[in-house]
Write a protein that binds this DNA or RNA. Structure first.
Length: 554
RNA sequence: GGCGACGUAGCUCAGUUGGUGAGAGCGCCCGACUCAUAAUCGGGAGGUCGACAGUUCGAAUCUGUCCGUCGCUACCA
């Protein structure tokens, strides 16, 4: 556990602005990050939660060309869509920006120059396909041709979509430029390379020393290092991207997206600091010995965060490496990997159109793929909402507030003489908060949510055992002690649900008072308790499936 | 092909460094209750932990082989 006041950088995967993101991305990174950040703030730590839209890279230019618009048009469209989603989901960013800012370019160039200066970046010549008609070099994806393996005529330069094999453009039979149709020719071109091989030893030692990391993250990363790290080209023959801070290569070269996107974590922190009025404030998270940095990403991004980014930080010097990278596995939809482009699963927007935000957050948090891929469906989300969230927690709040309203003259009653059982209930709730807090701190978010749900179930059991509705007829004083105890228990359990359910938590804050720390708040005796309206609506599964378009719900 | 992961009750998943009779939620069956969104609470049935062969006093947990599913394979990020 971190000491209160610890600076914690909550670094969240940068959504790629090439298309809509889906519920798998939400469950993989944004939701767990938000839960973690909300908890750490309540625990008294200094959270800086950053991310932004990743706006560069070949897929975006490919899409722009296909639609006859500019890359900026594509990026603006999806950046706006992402912002809308975060708003609706109440993701609590401290800074959500994009890699398209001047600040990001400046930070990227600073890192590039430092690494160049220290010899971790060098220049090499290679042969690349060149389109003489268009007068430009062609990324692999801009080259088409016949697949040498299966004979498919429309294979891409990087992969044949028919047989699925990965390709080198040089392997294509009868290669053609996708821009002009011309036959491309090989020409020498110069590019900068990041010398990852410089870091094989230091990264290996660093990874060996990691404790508490998820096994699959560590295994995967160590495997990469053991295979031997290969130097990678960090520039491309593109005009869409961050400009090089040196002119050695001439026109038409840009820093490529995989190198600069991870720098966003640092540039966003600096942007936040500038906006906060103290431009140096970012150092607390990046240079402090006591600072933690936790990167929330999907497993497809592991090497970028456990190898490449740490290598860049090591080479740059003076900046903290990741404390933990609790990468999630995949959320699958009826067995298939979610993919917005292939129409598998729901986009975030579609999810929000079908479910209220807290309901969606609950169902996904209860299904987070923390250890292994987790399968989900619209029916499964609805089941989680109806059978768990509404039945156990929503109903508990409703029954307790209803009874307090009816039996305690519509106000929080005096605690009165509590029995050992009454005290035990509240002790159990307090213990659950400690347990859930530890679990969230270790990024075991499913387990922590289960802890909260178990605590709610314990309050339900307490009510069934004490039967205050009967007591109200025979011993009203005792009934009020019981109801006051149950209300206090709910008052504590809501804290545990808080990081997961911001909307309903805000409703409860109206009713019971604010939560300003990770503990059961004091209940003000005499505070009015009105007849409640349900916190969550039950989902009509039949109507949902009928109304949602059939395959989207897959 | 190479690398990595997974295969545990009907469903979705947990099971630290191998060790008291294998777990949870939901579903199902029985019972209690009726304050509450027909919600809640208690009890129960249900699994040869993918298959086979090993290591071990002892394996879901380690090793090997096989079957099945999936991801990655570095110009998708």
């Amino acid at each position: 556990m971190a000491e209160p006041g610890t600076p914690i950088l909550v670094a969240v995967a940068w959504p790629y602005a090439s298309g809509s993101r889906h519920l798998g991305h939400l469950a993989g990174a944004y939701l767990p990050a938000d839960v973690f950040a909300r908890y750490q703030r309540l625990a008294g730590n200094r959270v800086l939660m950053v991310s932004g839209s990743d706006v560069h890279g070949t897929p975006i230019t490919v899409r722009a060309d296909a639609e006859g618009v500019t890359p900026a048009d594509i990026v603006d469209r999806y950046h706006a869509e992402f912002l809308d989603a975060w708003e609706r989901l109440a993701i609590s960013w401290d800074c959500y920006t994009s890699t398209g800012t001047d600040n990001h370019a400046a930070v990227t160039q600073d890192i590039f120059l430092r690494l160049l200066e220290k010899g971790h970046i060098d220049k090499r010549t290679s042969e690349q396909f060149y389109d003489a008609e268009a007068d430009r070099f062609l990324p692999d994806r801009y080259i088409g041709g016949t697949c040498p393996h299966c004979g498919y005529l429309e294979a891409r330069g990087d992969q044949c979509e028919d047989c699925g094999r990965t390709l080198d453009p040089g392997e294509l039979v009868d290669p053609r430029s996708k821009i002009t149709g011309a036959t491309p020719e090989l020409r020498a071109t110069e590019h900068f390379y990041l010398r990852l091989s410089d870091f094989t030893e230091s990264l290996g030692a660093w990874l060996d020393g990691r404790e508490g990391w998820r096994r699959h993250v560590l295994n995967f990363s160590k495997g990469w290092v053991e295979e031997g790290l290969q130097d990678r080209a960090i520039t491309r023959d593109l005009d869409w991207g961050v400009a090089l801070p040196v002119d050695d290569l001439g026109e038409g070269k840009k820093i490529y997206v995989w190198f600069e996107a991870v720098i966003g974590y640092l540039s966003a922190a600096k942007e936040w600091a500038q906006r906060s009025g103290d431009p140096e404030a970012w150092r607390e998270w990046w240079e402090g010995d006591d600072a933690r940095s936790v990167y929330f990403i999907g497993k497809d991004n592991i090497p970028f965060h456990t190898i490449i980014w740490p290598a860049m930080l090591t080479g740059y010097g003076g900046l903290n490496l990741p404390t933990d990278v609790p990468a999630n596995q995949y959320l699958t939809f009826k067995g298939g990997k979610a993919s917005a482009s292939r129409g598998v699963g729901l986009t975030i927007g579609e999810g929000l159109d079908l479910f209220e935000p807290d309901a969606l957050r609950y169902a996904l948090a209860a299904s987070l793929p923390e250890q292994s891929d987790t399968d989900i469906s619209v029916e499964e989300i609805a089941r989680r909402v109806n059978e768990e969230l509404v039945a156990t927690w929503g109903n508990l709040v409703n029954r307790v507030l209803s009874m307090v309203n009816a039996r305690c003259e519509g106000a929080v009653p005096e605690p009165g003489d509590r029995t050992a059982d009454d005290v035990a209930l509240l002790d159990g709730v307090d213990a659950a908060l400690v347990t859930a807090g530890d679990q969230i701190d270790r990024v075991e978010l499913r387990a922590a949510l289960r802890t909260a749900m178990d605590a709610a179930a314990a309050v339900n059991a307490y009510l069934n055992a004490t039967e205050p509705w009967k007591l109200a007829k025979t011993d009203l004083d005792r009934a009020r002690v019981v109801l006051g105890t149950a209300l206090d228990a709910v008052n504590g359990v809501r804290v545990a649900f808080g990081p997961y359910l911001p909307y309903s938590s805000a409703v409860l804050a109206e009713a019971l008072g604010p939560v300003d720390a990770w503990r059961r708040p004091d209940l003000a005796v005499g505070r009015p308790v009105e007849k409640p309206t349900p916190l969550f609506a039950k989902v009509d599964v039949e109507a949902l499936l009928a109304e949602g378009d059939g395959d989207a719900g897959a």
